[in-house]
């Protein structure tokens, strides 16, 4: 056999690895679901999902856990993408939390995230009986994520036990579970933030416009630039939104997501900015700052 130089680039290898993982999910589980959070990682995940099963449609639906505090542009983008791709999109809101009036301004970041995100996610997983939930988390995001398996076991109570992880060798993934238990699956485990952007650029993947710099109304709070996305944001006395040219490196609930001042209006400019960046993307996330091991703790409790 003659040697053909088909040396794969690192992006091609990452893509193939993720596709392999997605296909394993389809083959090993009865009722998988892909968590779709609308951000850049979800955009890449969705793109890979379409590739993995082509020419078939993805054999499982998307689920968005809506905290009701997402940027309006995110919701518009979500609905447009689902329509364009013709895929099933389930949206779950913790109605109990809504009735109790839970929100980041009234209850703080921790309670809001727990009720509207973590509890809501568990409700949705239980309601539909999903046995596998695919998420876009990457190992380079945070220290405890760096330790997590690609197929990560969850008890019937959705808990993660970091000390009892199943050994995971080669590309052989153990998806065996008993009734009620589930597996969280992370196909983007080995991608970095830079890989994500390079891939978005290479594949021309649509992303929420909030990632690109534009004049936006923001207020500065505790060193973070918070965008005033709707009238629910209470302004403090003397506080007035200012128009600043900003963009977001990461997207979540708007009151909890800090913008960065930036002139990057195109994908290459974003990547260029990233290469010069001196802070990590999670710095903009208010929920991570409580304590060093906070992500590990939240994940044990069922957070994605």
């Amino acid at each position: 056999m003659s040697v053909i130089d088909k040396k794969l680039t690192h992006l091609a290898l990452l893509e193939a690895e993720s596709i392999h993982i997605l296909r394993e999910v389809a083959a090993q589980f009865e009722r998988p679901v892909m968590l779709y959070s609308i951000g850049k990682d979800s955009a890449v995940l969705l793109h890979l999902l379409m590739k993995a099963f082509y020419p078939s449609k993805p054999p499982f639906p998307l689920l968005h856990v809506d905290t009701t505090w997402k940027f309006r542009e995110m919701i518009a983008f979500r609905d447009q993408r689902a329509k364009d791709l013709g895929i099933d999109l389930l949206v779950h809101i913790n109605q109990d939390g809504v009735e109790r009036g839970i929100g980041p301004f009234t209850h703080g970041a921790t309670v809001h995230t727990d009720v509207m995100k973590t509890q809501a996610l568990k409700q949705a997983l239980d309601k539909y009986g999903f046995d596998a939930a695919i998420g876009g988390a990457r190992r380079d995001e945070e220290k405890s994520r760096a330790k997590e398996r690609v197929f990560s076991f969850r008890s019937a109570a959705h808990r993660w036990d970091p000390k009892m992880q199943r050994p995971e060798l080669w590309n052989v993934y153990n998806g065996r579970i008993n009734k009620g238990e589930s597996i969280r699956v992370f196909p983007l485990s080995n991608w970095t933030e830079l890989d994500i952007w390079q891939y978005i650029m290479q594949e021309n993947i649509p992303v929420v416009p909030l990632y690109f710099a534009k004049p936006r109304p923001v207020v500065e709070r505790d060193g973070a630039l918070i965008m005033v996305d709707d009238e629910r944001m209470p302004l403090k006395p003397g506080e007035a939104p200012q128009m600043r040219t900003v963009r977001f490196r990461t997207l979540g609930c708007y009151p909890l997501t800090g913008a960065v001042e930036s002139e990057a209006e195109t994908l290459p400019e974003i990547v260029r900015e990233m290469l010069l960046a001196r802070t990590s993307e999670r710095q903009g996330r208010v929920i991570d700052h409580d304590q060093s091991a906070s992500m590990e703790k939240k994940k044990q409790e069922g957070y994605f």
Binding site: I4, K6, L8, A12, L13, A16, I19, A52
Partner: peptide, 14 residues
């Protein structure tokens, strides 16, 4: 593949 049919594919490709 979704990006079109290939003439040849090698180790590591999905």
């Amino acid at each position: 593949t979704q990006d079109g049919e290939l003439e040849v594919a090698g180790a590591g490709e999905a």
